[in-house]
Each structure stands twice: as structure tokens, then as C-alpha cells.
């Protein structure tokens, strides 16, 4: 029968000096980093669901909703959407290059992705400037409130992605990725694809419908 507190016995209880660190690996055969990024993307999905859900609720509750095609430059943005989708393709190429250990190709495809991402942001900023010039700002009405919130948060995500990919590029430049160690490229890629996917959704509901 155990007493409330077991006695202290230095012979057994004192920590061993100089011991190695035991690190175990368990669970599904997927890297920790990749597992974590999927969790992170799940939170991102919930975040955008909150925004998109709010948009749908507000729009369906509104007595009238302006025709987006009249207020927004749909053609430019359609082109922009095409750009972003292209960048998903270049990103896939970059990941393949990383896995094959082809540093030159990796750098090139990454650079392409970064460039396209940056163009996307630039075009969006240009669109914003145009709109703000016309006096279309969040406080005008609920259309503009939701428009800026949704595209703004997506734009921020693209900017983060561009910065992230640039870090990956610099690491790749220094030879930081090898055939066996290229997780960093893949993680950035997963995020990038997610950001693309969200845009396709946003473009459809905000610009087209």
C-alpha cells in the first residue's frame, strides 16, 4: 500500500549527469513540419470560412446588392487570377526540381513563382488605388466593406507567401536544399497552393456572382 508521498532516495531519484536526449518518432509517416503545416492550413480554412460565411450571410440578408461587374474591373482581375493559377504550376515545378536536386531549376522556378506572386499583388494594389481614387472605400457601403476585408486579407496572405518564397529562394541559393532535404520548399509550396485556391474561390463569389 502506498503512502501519500514516497520518500526521496538520492540513489534512485537524482538525475543522471550527462545523459543523451531521447527523441522518438511515432504516428503516420509524415514529417513533423508537414503535419504542422496541414494543421496550420486547417486553421486558415476556418479563418477564410469565417470571412466568406459572413459575406454570404450579409449578401443574402441585404435588400439589394450591387452588381459586382459594374463596380469592379473583372477583366483585369480575371487576368490576375490566371496569373496566380500559373504560379501554382511554377511552384509545382519548383518542388519537382528540389526533389530532383536540380538547384538551378529550383532557383528559376521559384523566381518565376515569386515574380508572378509579386505581379499579382502589384495589380491588386493598382486596382485598390484606382478604386480609392474613385472614392470606393470601406465606409461607403457594405459591398466595399466586405470587398476590402476579403481581398485585403487574401492579399496579405500573398505578400506573406512572396516573402516566405523569397526566404526559400535565398536558402536555395546557398545550397540549403538537397535531394533528401527539401521539406522547406514543399511546405512553402503547400501554403502557396492554398493561397491560390482561396483566391479562385474569392474571385468567383466576389467578382463573378
Amino acid at each position: 500500500m502506498s503512502e501519500a508521498l514516497a520518500a526521496y532516495d538520492p540513489a534512485v531519484d537524482a538525475p543522471a549527469h550527462h545523459h543523451p536526449v531521447y527523441d522518438y518518432d511515432s504516428g503516420p509517416p509524415v514529417e513533423r513540419g508537414k503535419f504542422a503545416i496541414w494543421l496550420f492550413l486547417a486553421t486558415e480554412i476556418m479563418f477564410f470560412s469565417g470571412l466568406i460565411g459572413a459575406y454570404i450571410v450579409l449578401r443574402s440578408a441585404a435588400k439589394s446588392w450591387p452588381d459586382p461587374q459594374e463596380r469592379l474591373a473583372v477583366d483585369i482581375t480575371a487576368f490576375n487570377t490566371f496569373l496566380l493559377i500559373t504560379s501554382s504550376w511554377t511552384m509545382v515545378k519548383a518542388v519537382f526540381a528540389a526533389k530532383a536536386g536540380e538547384r538551378g531549376k529550383l532557383l528559376a522556378w521559384l523566381a518565376a513563382t515569386i515574380a508572378i506572386g509579386a505581379s499579382f499583388v502589384s495589380i491588386q494594389v493598382y486596382e485598390y488605388i484606382q478604386l480609392i481614387h474613385e472614392g470606393a472605400i470601406p465606409k461607403i457601403d457594405i459591398f466595399w466593406s466586405t470587398f476590402y476585408a476579403m481581398t485585403g486579407f487574401h492579399g496579405t496572405h500573398v505578400v506573406v507567401g512572396v516573402i516566405w518564397l523569397s526566404c526559400v529562394w535565398f536558402k536555395a541559393l546557398g545550397g540549403g536544399y538537397t535531394v533528401r532535404n527539401n521539406l522547406g520548399v514543399e511546405l512553402a509550396g503547400l501554403y502557396w497552393h492554398f493561397v491560390d485556391l482561396v483566391w479562385v474561390l474569392l474571385f468567383t463569389i466576389v467578382y463573378l456572382f
Binding site: 479563418f47 477564410f48 469565417g50 470571412l51 459572413a54 450579409l58 472605400i137 470601406p138 465606409k139 457601403d141 457594405i142 466595399w144 466593406s145 466586405t146 476590402y148 476585408a149 486579407f153
Partner: peptide, 18 residues
């Protein structure tokens, strides 16, 4: 909640109307 707090901040800081 984060999305919602951002919307409320939008309302408060940029006069949005969520």
C-alpha cells in the same frame, strides 16, 4: 473569432459596416 475580431476592427477603424 480572429476573423470576427478583424471584422469588428474594420468596423471601428475603417468605418466598415459589417
Amino acid at each position: 473569432l480572429t476573423a470576427a475580431t478583424f471584422m469588428q476592427l474594420f468596423d471601428r477603424l475603417f468605418d466598415a459596416g459589417f
